[in-house]
Amino acid sequence: MSKRIEAIGLNIYYGSFLAVENVNMDIKPRSITALIGPSGCGKSTFLRTLNRIHEIIPGARVDGKVLLDGDDLYGPGVDPVLVRRQVGMVFQRPNPFPTMSIKENVLAGVKLNNKRISRSDADDLVESSLRGANLWNEVKDRLDAPGAGLSGGQQQRLCIARTIAVKPDVVLMDEPCSALDPISTLAIEDLMQELKKEYTIVIVTHNMQQASRVSDMTGFFNIAGTGKPGHLIEYADTAKIFSNPDKAETEDYISGRFG
C-alpha cells in the first residue's frame, strides 16, 4: 500500500507565529521526495504536519488541506491517532524504547495498540520487518537483547523496522542519517530504495548529495529572514533541481552561494 499526499494552501502556525506559508505540493506514491533548505526554513515543521505529530507542541495549528489519497487529514472528526497509523515517522536521533528488547521494539506498534497477535505471526512480523530494515542478519541471534544496546546505525534501522511493522502507507523521515556514520548512512539509503517499492517516502535532509542520490523529487524550502515564514521555493524532479533549477535562489543554495 502506498498513498499520494497533496498539500493545498498549507499554512502552519506556532501560536500566532506563521512558521510556514502557503505550501502546495503533490507527493507521488512509490517515490522518494526529498525536502532540502537551510536550518529553520520550516521543512521539518512541514514534514511533521503530514502525520499531525506537530500537534504535540502546544499552540501548533494548521490551515489549508493535506490530502492522503483524497482524504483530508485536517477534516472535522479526523482522529490524529488513525492518521499516524497510516503515516509513520523516523526521527533524527534513533529513539528505540529503552525498556524493550529488539523484538519488543519491532512489535511495539502492534503491542501498544493492544492488538492480539499469535506467537508465530509475531515472529514472522519481526523477521519480515527486520529484513525489510536490513537488520535481520545482525540481530537474529539476540532478539531478546535490549534495543538500546545496538550501535547508532543499527538503532536507526531498528526504528525503521518498528515503523514499517505497523504497515503504514507513507514513511516520513526527518534527517534520519544526520547522527550516523557514512557506512550506516549507506545502509539506510539502500534501504530507502527497497522501501520505495511499497511506500511513499518523504525525507528531510541537510545533505544535498544524499538528496540527489536517493530522491525522485526534491522540494527546496527557504526563509526570507529570521521571524519570517518559510516558503516552498521550488518543487521539481531531483535531476532538474540539481542541474537546471528554475529559480535563482535554488541555484544559489545547491551550488553553495547564498543571498
Binding site: 504535540i56 491517532v81 529513539n95 501498544l112 493492544n114
Partner: peptide, 28 residues
C-alpha cells in the same frame, strides 16, 4: 525524553497508552 513520546505517537499509539506504557514504564 520527548523523543520516546514522539516515537510512540508516530506508531499511532493513543496518548493514554503512550503515557502508561512508554512514559511511566520508562520512568518506572
Amino acid at each position: 525524553p520527548n523523543e520516546l513520546r514522539e516515537a510512540s505517537y508516530a506508531l499511532g499509539v493513543p496518548k493514554w497508552v503512550t503515557v502508561l506504557r512508554v512514559v511511566v514504564r520508562t520512568a518506572a
